[in-house]
Structures are given as structure tokens and as C-alpha cells.
Computed example of a mutant assay.
Amino acid sequence: MNRFQNKTAFITGGNSGIGKESALIIAKEGANIMIADIKENKDVLKELESLGVKAAFIACDVSDPMAVKEAVTATVKTFGSLDVAFNNAGVGDEGFIHEKTFEQWKKVIDINLSGVFYCMKYEIEQMLQQKNGGNIINVSSILGQVGTPGASAYVAAKHGVVGLTQTAAAEYGAKNIRVNAIGPGYIETPLLHSMSREQKYALEQMHPMKRLGRPEEVAKAFLWLASDDSSFMTGDYIPVDGGYLAQ
């Protein structure tokens, strides 16, 4: 199928993990792709272009609002529109609250929460100018619904992403702009690569399915939310978590 032919997807953190797989899955359905990430990965661009679509990269630190504005502007200048936005860039967190430095707290909040706000602000400004509106998917987490020790900034940010998603959906539902959030469980991405086998096993056991998720499993949820198959959904939070939140 080519459901996204002549449409443009803007994906933050698109060089690896969930972002990369989401870029590939929507490119296979015809979408042109703008990857916004800290550093360029030409192999990812070549892989996307091999699917017969146009792909471009722009360096973007989502914690910098002017960098985000420039990235959205460049997307429209390059491809002519912004139809799907996937606000996926994020960093991990560690340390109990009394141990956490202000710098650690600020970094996680700036990227994982404020970065999503900056992206939504400029994405929505563009989508309001388009006849067909647009579609925004934000990456929250299972930790956007519950807490966990040692990740206070991450938990606060991901809860905030759910609230931002719901608020934006209420504000722009009549403007043909849909906004939803995905809540991945623990997924086999570069964020977990520094963990030992024992640590990964412990994470696996937290899920009723007794394994980690795969980036492509989250990408499939992204594709569905980006498509008209989910046309009456906005302000929703969809967990992709191997049953984590069912417990």
C-alpha cells in the first residue's frame, strides 16, 4: 500500500531504535522522511532512499526551541508539507531524588518534556496553515502512567507528555489535527545497550510476556496512529508494553 504517498513525516530521534523503525515503516508506504537527530547517519538515509522515497536529515537538539523551529521550517521547505510528526527523541534517567543533581533533572526535562512541547508548538503552527491539517504522535512510556524508583525526571517528563497530548487534542480536534501518544514498555533500543545480561533479564521479567519489546513492534503502532485507520482517535494513550500495565 502507498497510504502516505506525497506526504511528509518528520521524525525526531530517527537514526536508531523506535525512530528508525518508524521512519522505515512509513517510508515503505510512500512517505518522504525528514530525520531530525543530533548527528547524521548516512546509512539510515540510504536505507530510506532505497525504498523509493525522498529522505533528508537536519541536525536538531530538541531541547533548543530555535533548533526545533528551524527543523520544522526546513522540512516544509524541502518537501512542501508536514503531514505526520513523530516526537520520539528522548534520553534515560537514573538516581534517586535526593541524589539527583539539578543538571540531571534539567537535562531530562528539557529533552523529554520541553522538547516535545517545542516540537508540537511549531508542528501545529504549520499544520494549522495546511488544508488537510496533520497528525502528531508523541512518545511517552509505560512510565507515563506509573512511577518507578530511580527515574523521577523521566517519569515526570513522560507523565507530562501524556498531559500535553490530551490538551493539544482538545485544543485542535476541530482543526483536523490529531494528537496521540504511544507508551512503550522496555524496548530493545540503544538506551539499554549498556545494561548487563542480568539487568536485561530483570526487565524482561517485569512484563507478562517475559521479554523486551522490539522497535518494529512500536513502529507498527505509530503507523496505525499515523494512518486513517485510527481516524476517530485523538488524545489517546496507547501502551505497547507486553502487558506491563496490566499487572
Rank of each mutant, 00 (worst) to 15 (best):
N132T: 09
F86L: 12
G52C: 09
A56R: 13
A74H: 05
K42I: 04
V139W: 02
I58V: 11
Q129H: 00
N112D: 15
M127G: 11
A89V: 06
I137F: 07
S63W: 04
G95K: 07
K54S: 14
S140N: 05
A74Y: 04
K54N: 14
S141Y: 02
L82T: 13
A59Y: 00
V84C: 11
T75A: 01
F96N: 15
F79R: 05
A55F: 01
I58C: 03
Q130P: 06
N138Y: 02
L82K: 08
F79A: 06
G90S: 03
T73H: 00
F96E: 15
A89R: 04
I109H: 06
Y118I: 01
G133D: 13
G52P: 06
K121R: 15
L82A: 08
S50H: 08
D83G: 07
D64F: 01
P65R: 06
F96D: 15
V108S: 07
A67M: 11
K46A: 14
Q126G: 05
Y122P: 00
H98L: 15
D83S: 10
Q129T: 08
S50Q: 13
D43K: 15
K100H: 02
L48V: 08
L45Y: 10
G134E: 15
E70I: 00
K77A: 12
T73S: 03
S140W: 02
G133L: 14
E125K: 09
G115L: 03
N138Q: 08
G134D: 15
E70N: 09
E49Q: 13
T75F: 01
W105C: 08
D83E: 10
A85Q: 06
T75W: 00
V72R: 02
S114V: 14
T101L: 06
V139Q: 10
E125D: 14
V44M: 14
C60Y: 00
V68Y: 02
H98N: 14
N135M: 13
K121A: 13
K100F: 00
E47I: 03
Q130W: 09
V139T: 14
I97P: 01
D93Q: 02
G80T: 07
A85E: 04
G80E: 06
A89P: 07
K106G: 11
S114E: 15
A55S: 07
S81A: 14
E103L: 11
N132F: 00
F57C: 04
L51W: 09
E49H: 01
V84H: 11
